[in-house]
Amino acid sequence: MDKVVNQKAWFLVLPVFAIVAFSAILPLMTVVNYSVQDTFGNNQFFWNGVGWFKELLDPSSDLGGRFFASLWRNLAFSAIILAIEVPLGIVVALAMPRHGWSVAFCLVIMALPLLIPWNVVGTIWQIFGRPDIGLMGYTLNHLGFNYNYVSNEFDAWATVVVMDVWHWTSLVALLCYAGLKSIPDAYYQAAQIDGASRWAVFKAIQLPKMHRVLLIAVLLRFMDSFMIYTEPFVVTGGGPGNSTTFISIELVKIALGQFDLGKAAALSIVYNLIIIIVCWVFYTVMTNAGAERRPAEGSV
């Protein structure tokens, strides 16, 4: 077998490789470099081995304590918004019209929150929730609820969660809607003939057909909410106290506030690993589910 050797491909690959190296691999290596050293400024570095990592993963240390506290907060936040956004997104998708001019109208309305920059979303809700001039904050307080996201932990969490639901439920809904639209009419007609109830149609047809887009939606929303920074930073600044300080906010505090580059680098790497591992697990689950679903030909 004579394979034609064509080295020209390198000319096409090399620029990409250079750009990726410059923009991703080199900075990442810098982070790895920082994570194993300590510095007192003046560009003087001292070898610290896995010291920062040990400290980070030890809950009794100051760094470890902060890391685990923010990690649990982050996981709780992701769990709450997924528990709200996924069912809500499905319900919204089911309620959306399937034909006519209202389809385009709904799609545009749904897409609007997705198009607003993160910090603008944060600013909107920061003002919206203020008890003195914000429409929501003012109204709630006048209805007798003592709502103040600056001083009350629960109110701060509620505001951040509602903001995220407002911002991202459309994404889940749009994905589900795409999944629903791909179901041929014959399925609904067959279900009608089979005498299926509305609930049975949802369980037997719609949910299985949305299965894959839902996995994508959950994956996207998990990653995004796990990395959330801008909106809570703008609205609550991580407070009151540390109650809405998520990992990314903690990371910026350590890196830019205290200028502890070694600790921040170690935290970055662990943070990154968590996200990669979760994505990998999701990816595996998704492809396995897909393989199971593919009909085996000639196996009657």
């Binding site: 014959a186 399925y187 007609q189 067959a190 009608q192 003939i193 037997a204 057909k209």
Partner: peptide, 21 residues
């Protein structure tokens, strides 16, 4: 009468089966 109340069976162009069952 609706399809459900008519006692009709229909086989479609593309096989309609319930995937999860």
């Amino acid at each position: 009468l609706s399809t459900r109340d008519r006692n009709i069976a229909q086989v479609f162009q593309f096989p309609v089966i319930y995937d999860t069952m």
